[in-house]
Design a protein around this nucleic acid. Structure first.
Lengths: 227, 227
DNA sequence: CGGCTATTATGAACATGTTCATAATTGAAC
DNA sequence: GTTCAATTATGAACATGTTCATAATAGCCG
């Protein structure tokens, strides 16, 4: 008994609230995945969650916010796992790719929903769920930055801009490439990542000023010393 | 009489249709700019255009499509002007910046509406106005590509990838930078373009493999031949 | 002109996200 | 236990994008 009371945390109120939030999140999640965002009505979600229609709006400002309520956590989890996927001794491109692969897999799981979510992410700053989302995004950018920092420490590269800014440019490429990959659902994960590597390779190598003179073929990876 | 009949082009039908399309476009345009996208109702647009509510949907599949109906033309015009802004003898970064500046100015004119439009542009493939939009986007990417090609011809750079693909990476950076600039409306045009130059500079110079050893300061522009 | 068909126009009806006045519930004060 | 204020829950009412059955119109033939 006392155990149960302790487990109940303080107050029935808080407990009930958390429980309802959980149910609403689960219901929204399931329905969004099963029927897509637009074809899921708030009334269906309310019904499945076992709450009144109006109740949902106590937990999410609007339908869009509800989407992020279901996506924020998994997205943060992916970013967190990506942090663990970086190997301080691996080549830069491998690390960037490892980070990207986890995200590609995540979004590739539900392409239709991912398309919608990625669209709504553009300029998502107003909703209640915006701050945690922005935080995760910031975290990913910093991860790219720190990964680049590692490569600098290893002597692999020496960018003319701070690693964090270089990470931002990597993020730019990543963002648009991911969207492009999701745009035509024909291409597999392999093909998508392959084009991302191509783009990131170009970013790291640069456009080869008259100085650089990049090789015409061969050696995709492994930057070489200049003879 | 016969004059009038000739001037009417073939058929009153076609003429009326074109006239209604014009009125609808103008009404939507005005209202979107004045009140924003969400706060403009289809009924207001119909009223201002002097047509019935249902009539609008004969000319635009949905409200979103109506937005592109008003934006496609000006956007294409901007891209077209950008093509004329490229100087075959100018440094690459200057040309890229000239292209970008025109677009920044265009979107910066109506930041709120631009934010909305740029969001809807992500994965915009279904609507009736999607093909012309995609065409303009393709055109911009190719413009970046051809601009790079010019720099290759001038001996300024020698990228390890085809110019068109290099143009695509420039487009990636441009897209995300533009969105970021529009996200916080505080920063002026100058500041936004300045950061874009920073990012594009990094893209063209690369991350300076152990080979490259980029200069620490100085010489922002004007790539030099290697002594 | 007078009918006839295809095209175009229309707004009432519908679907659904969102608001809000009202009701139910909780936790504490006495 | 009763009372009461604060919090939370609810669905009817509302606003608005979209559909669709119906009407108006244009062009054409006899």
């Amino acid at each position: 008994m006392s155990d149960a009371m302790l487990a109940a945390a303080d107050g029935l109120r808080t407990r009930n609230k958390l429980e309802k939030l959980r149910r609403i999140k689960a219901a929204a999640q399931d329905l969004f995945v099963a029927r897509g965002f637009d074809d899921t009505t708030m009334r269906e979600i309310a019904l499945r969650a076992g709450v009144g229609l109006g109740t949902i709006f106590l937990y999410a400002k609007d339908k869009r916010d509800l989407l992020f309520l279901t996506i924020n956590e998994p997205l943060q989890a992916v970013t967190q796992r990506a942090e663990g996927a970086v190997d301080p001794r691996a080549p830069l491109i491998d690390n960037l790719l490892a980070i990207a692969r986890l995200h590609y897999r995540f979004f590739g799981r539900q392409p239709a929903l991912a398309r919608f979510a990625l669209r709504e992410m553009t300029f998502y700053e107003s909703g209640e769920q915006a701050p945690p989302f922005q935080k995760t995004r910031e975290r990913l950018i910093r991860l790219f930055g720190r990964t680049i920092e590692l490569a600098v420490a290893n002597g692999e590269i020496a960018p003319s801009e701070p690693p964090l800014f270089a990470g931002w440019t990597v993020f730019c490429i990543f963002q648009v490439e991911l969207r492009r990959w999701l745009a035509d659902d024909a291409r597999g994960l392999r093909a998508g990542l392959s084009e991302l590597v191509r783009a990131l390779g170009l970013l790291t190598r640069g456009f080869g000023g008259a100085a650089g003179r990049a090789p015409r073929r061969r050696q995709q990876r492994r930057s070489k010393k200049n003879p």
